[in-house]
C-alpha cells in the first residue's frame, strides 16, 4: 500500500492545471497521511483540486459540504429511527427490525471509512461550521475510527482516505485543528498560469481573444474598492459569454469596451464601480 502511494504520484488532471509547488505538497501530504488544508480566494481552484486528485489517482470522490447546522454525528452516520418505527408497525420490508444495524446509514465521513477502495474525501468550506465541530472532526480523522453508540460498535477505516479540507475564511482555524493538518494557501494565478487554465477549458480559443481577455481581466481586477473581485470562475463564464456573442470583436476589448460586465461583477455596488471605471478609461 505504502509503496503504491509513493509510485502513484499526483501530477494533475485533464481539467486542472497544477503548479509544481502544489503538486509536491499534495504528494508529501498523501505520504504522511495527513489532511491537507487549503485556503485561498474563491475561484482559485481549492475544490477543484480534490476532484483532480480523485480523477488522476482514479479514486472515488466523496464530498462533505459543510453547513453551519451540520453536526459531527450527521457526517459520520445516521440512525434512521422513523423507518425502523414504520417497519416495526407494518413489517413489510426486508430489513430486520430487531437489528438496529440495518437502520444505520453512513454519512459522508462514514462512507469514506467503509469504502472498499481508497477514496478522496473532500470536506468543503470547513469554516462554516463552529470550532467544536472542527476539533471533534479532526479527532475522528486522526484516529480513523468512530463509535456508533446505538449498536456499541467501533467503525475503523478500511483504507485511510486522502483528505482535502477547504476554507474560505480570512480568520484562522483553531490551533489544535491547524496542528493536525498540512497547510497551503493557493495564491491567485498569475497571467501566465491563467492562460494555461483558459487553454484547458477552451482548447480552440483564438490567441488574440485569449491575450485581450486576460489583459482586460487583470486590469478590471485592479479596480479600486471592489468587494468581490472576479475570480477564475467568473473569467471562464465571461469568455463563454463572449464566445457565444456573434457580434463580439476581441479588438474592441483593449479599447476599453467591455461587454457583459455583469458576469464578472456580481454585487451591485461593485458592478456600478466597474462600469464607472471602464467608462472613464474608455474616454482616455
Amino acid at each position: 500500500m505504502e509503496g503504491n502511494i509513493l509510485n502513484n504520484k499526483f501530477s494533475g488532471a485533464t481539467r486542472y492545471i497544477l503548479d509544481n509547488e502544489l503538486a509536491s505538497i499534495v504528494n508529501v501530504t498523501m505520504a504522511l497521511e495527513m489532511p491537507l488544508l487549503l485556503k485561498g480566494e474563491p475561484g482559485t481552484g481549492k475544490t477543484m483540486l480534490a476532484h483532480a486528485i480523485a480523477e488522476s489517482l482514479t479514486m472515488p470522490l466523496i464530498v462533505l459540504n459543510v453547513k453551519s447546522s451540520l453536526k459531527l454525528v450527521d457526517a459520520l452516520y445516521q440512525y434512521d429511527t422513523l423507518t425502523r418505527l414504520n417497519d416495526s408497525r407494518f413489517g413489510d420490508s426486508h430489513r430486520d427490525v430487531s437489528n438496529i444495524e440495518d437502520y444505520i446509514k453512513m454519512g459522508k465521513i462514514g462512507q469514506s471509512f467503509t469504502s472498499k477502495q481508497r477514496t478522496v474525501l473532500l470536506i468543503d468550506e470547513i469554516d462554516k461550521a463552529d470550532t467544536d465541530f472542527q476539533d471533534d472532526m479532526l479527532d475522528v480523522l486522526d484516529q480513523m475510527e468512530f463509535d456508533i453508540i446505538e449498536v456499541d460498535k467501533t467503525m475503523k477505516a478500511v483504507h485511510r482516505p486522502v483528505i482535502i479540507i477547504t476554507s474560505n475564511a480570512k480568520k484562522d482555524l483553531s490551533d489544535p485543528f491547524l496542528g493536525r493538518c498540512n497547510f497551503h494557501h493557493i495564491a491567485f494565478p498569475d497571467p501566465k498560469m491563467m492562460r494555461k487554465i483558459i487553454g484547458v477549458h477552451f482548447p480552440d480559443i483564438d490567441s488574440n481573444l485569449m491575450e485581450n481577455v486576460v489583459t482586460m481581466f487583470y486590469r478590471v481586477r485592479e479596480i479600486d474598492g471592489v468587494e468581490k473581485k472576479p475570480a477564475t470562475r467568473e473569467l471562464i463564464n465571461w469568455i463563454r459569454a463572449l464566445k457565444s456573442d456573434p457580434d463580439f470583436n476581441p479588438k474592441a476589448l483593449i479599447k476599453g469596451d467591455i461587454p457583459y460586465l455583469g458576469v464578472l461583477f456580481k454585487k451591485s455596488p461593485d458592478y456600478e464601480r466597474a462600469v464607472e471605471a471602464t467608462r472613464r478609461s474608455h474616454v482616455i
Partner: peptide, 15 residues
C-alpha cells in the same frame, strides 16, 4: 525546492 514547499505546508499554518 521540495524542502521549501513541504516545510512550509507542514510548519506554517497561515498565509
Amino acid at each position: 525546492d521540495e524542502f521549501y514547499t513541504s516545510a512550509r505546508a507542514i510548519l506554517v499554518k497561515s498565509e
